[in-house]
Amino acid sequence: MQNKNYHIFINFVTALAVTLFFSCQSNTTSDQNYVISEDAPIGEAFDVNLKYTDSGRLTAVLKAKRILDYTHRSFGYHEFPEGIILDVIDEEGKVSKITSDYAISYQQTALIDMIGNVDIKTADSTHLQADQLYWDQNINWVFTDRPYKSYLPGGDINEGDGFDANQDFTILNSRINDGVILIKE
């Protein structure tokens, strides 16, 4: 009888072990669904409204429909594939508005590349339009090698094939330009 109970016990343990062995399955295929490609962004944001401050003073408001975060790359950047609207607020509270169809902001160089229907309206009513414009945030300088058109507050119009200027446009170096300058008699 003891031998019979021993065989029943061994058969039961063997059946249990076989059942457990075959019931286990690998989860590696479902885990692979969470692997992110190196080309993919590590973050994505929609309908963004960022406010930048400096010493408690509001200095800029950035609005974008979509931001892609590629800061995990060796030369990290943020991409704005659907464009930006940027309000820059000076120390006197005057607002300048910058818009573009697409933009990319590089972390290491603090350079922003704006492409497509770049439009700048400064607080003093200067209006600038360009296909592409770069803004170096480190030295507060804007520049382009592409055609642009500017409308100055006094009615002057300038068209050129490239310029560089400080961000207030009080210093402007234009290359190969043509325009209309109004002179009082």
Rank of each mutant, 00 (worst) to 15 (best):
A40D: 12
K149F: 11
L20T: 14
I85N: 12
E79N: 06
D168I: 00
V61I: 14
K65F: 09
D164S: 03
S100Q: 07
I139M: 03
K65G: 05
Y70C: 02
N49E: 07
F80M: 11
N173L: 06
V95M: 09
L50H: 11
G160W: 13
E92P: 04
T59R: 14
S23H: 06
E38R: 13
E185I: 10
I120V: 08
A64K: 00
D161K: 00
G162F: 06
L62N: 00
F9E: 07
D131K: 10
T53C: 01
F22R: 07
I67R: 05
R146G: 10
L62Y: 02
A40F: 10
H72P: 06
P41R: 09
N33R: 01
D178H: 15
H72R: 08
Q129G: 07
E82Y: 13
K65M: 10
L182I: 14
K149R: 14
L68S: 02
K4C: 00
R175E: 08
M114C: 07
Y148L: 04
D101I: 03
I8W: 13
Q167N: 13
A15N: 11
Y102D: 14
Q2E: 07
F21S: 13
Q108H: 01
G160K: 02
A110R: 12
A40Q: 12
D156V: 09
S174I: 14
S26A: 04
I139R: 03
T99C: 08
A165G: 05
F21I: 12
R66W: 13
H78Q: 07
Y34F: 07
Q129R: 09
E185L: 09
F21Q: 05
V18M: 14
T144R: 08
S55M: 08
R66V: 09
S26P: 04
A110L: 13
L152I: 06
D90G: 03
Y34S: 02
I139Q: 11
V88T: 10
K94R: 10
V35Y: 03
S125W: 01
Q108P: 01
L68Q: 15
R175K: 15
G76W: 00
F163V: 15
F21C: 02
T109Q: 11
D69T: 09
T71H: 00
N11C: 13
Q32N: 05
I10E: 00
L182S: 05
K51N: 06
L182C: 00
T53D: 09
D178T: 11
T99R: 15
V13R: 03
H7T: 12
P41C: 10
D113G: 12
T19M: 11
I89A: 05
E185V: 03
A103G: 08
I10L: 14
V118G: 06
H7K: 10
H72S: 13
T99E: 13
L182E: 08
Y34Q: 03
I84S: 00
S26W: 02
F169P: 04
Y6G: 01
D164V: 10
A130P: 01
I157Q: 12
N5R: 04
D54G: 03
I84N: 03
T126N: 09
F169M: 10
L20E: 01
Y52Q: 13
T19A: 11
D136Q: 08
K4S: 01
R73K: 11
I98E: 05
V88M: 05
A64S: 14
G162V: 14
T59G: 02
K184Y: 10
A17N: 00
K63F: 04
I181Q: 15
